[in-house]
Design a protein around this nucleic acid. Sequence first.
RNA 1: CGGAGUGUAGCGCAGUCUGGUAGCGCAUCUGCUUUGGGAGCAGAGGGCCGGGAGUUCGAAUCUCUCCACUCCGACCA
Length: 490
Amino acid sequence: MSNAPAAKASNYKSAIQPTRAENFPEWYQAVVKEADLAESSAVRGCYVIKPYGYGMWENIQRELDARIKECDVQNAYFPLLIPVEYLSKEAEHVDGFAKECAVVTHHRLEKGPDGKLIPASPLEHPYVIRPTSETIIGETIKNWIQSYRDLPCKLNQWCNVMRWEMRPRVFLRTAEFLWQEGHNCLETADGSREDALLMLSVYKDLMENCLALPVMEGEKTADERFPGAIATYTLELMMQDGKALQGCTSHDLGQTFSKSCDIKFQGRDGKEQHAWTTSWGLTTRTIGAILMAHGDDDGAIMPPVVATYQVAIIPFLKDDAGKDALLGYCNKVKTALKAKGIRVSLDASDVRASNKTWDAIKKGIPLRVEIGEKEMAEGNVTHIRRDLGKDSKQTVSVDEFVNNAERLLQDIHKSMFEKAKAFRDSHIFDVKTVDEVRDFFKADKAGFVRADVSILEDKALEAVRKEFAITPRCIPFSDSGKKVLLGKSY
RNA sequence: CGGAGUGUAGCGCAGUCUGGUAGCGCAUCUGCUUUGGGAGCAGAGGGCCGGGAGUUCGAAUCUCUCCACUCCGACCA
């Protein structure tokens, strides 16, 4: 933005206000609203995901589900309600979630004296609405597993969960959210560790190749671990304000849950033993990550692989006389693109073309196709890349465009990834001492600092962590466990 | 759950300090003229000022009390 040519500075106005530099959190909310992705609901902390936003989630689901199944995981579904006793069996687990559980205590409503409905018929055994399903899945599959021949047992469910958050933020932290949670059961300690890492690699594939998000893969420090896990692996993402967002999570649960749920099997040696389990999840938060990693001051920029629409066709209608012919031409282009498997929107409404254009920009549709009488007369289309802006405008024949559209989308993906990666790489700074950590965040610089893991032992770090609200994000694999990344996070 | 802020038309805001029955911009509707990076002119419609209680002849404005949202923390995907 700062290097925008002075010539157009006079009439330049970003579509989203405030800009990222002016106020990042407010910019984020404006992007969500202007792109028509979601809105707040009557229920505190719960949001309505609107069709344009839900379309992204469906595409993320499709891509991730296929990859999960490649790992021989089967989909299943377990109840929304979990008996409170289940949760209380694992001490660390209950500590981790007890504070944020919604509890179902009654099973009926009746009219009170003032005509209002009040809960009636208290439940003898209350339920919690699942914050996660380790316990109920464990209690179920213990009956499915008797022998090493029943292993591995790999299950996944797509569902909603509820965690009573105090400070909700659309997509990033909501009381109810959508995710998949995988729960695998393995034969050995090595098996569960390798499995947790395998699922992490699936997420990495999704992030890089579908969401165009560069990741920092690593292990969480002990205090950042999932309650009950022996190791938590993560993909940390960097947002454009330099804050971290945890992109997914994959836990090696060891025998914690197999012991509390009593998942036992007879091993190859004939001896009975507890199984080794993993759990791994990815949520609708990834949509927030996409917005904050790729968006610019004109709004969202959607990665082509999961974009609800990959191409927006915008007819430039001059008058009613030529309307039918022009829309017919646009529809032909749309049909040709759809035949190539490309998701296309065509805005045939009477709204002014320039407003349709801005709508497509704010929604972040990767490719915009403008079609007016000029194009129609010559058998052409004009196309513009969202990530590069109007300087990328090109006019080519319909055939050429249709044949090249897939490659154009791939190019967009590639440059989005490279741009995000360049940002990430230029916002990680090596430091040696706690004082350098303090100096970095005191100067209000954006990004992470990378230090030797021994810094975690330094007593002085605690005060700095508190003062600037920084946490260890992960111990990246890339430094073979010798370094730790510290930063602010969502 | 702690600290701070904001609730007035679909959206963004002014008006509140100093009480007198509500205004601006955008959007919407109508008409004409326009049309390739947010159109122009003319006209029109739309709000019991977040809810409740109180003070007052009179409350958007003062008092009390709820509620919601936003930001910064704590907690987390």
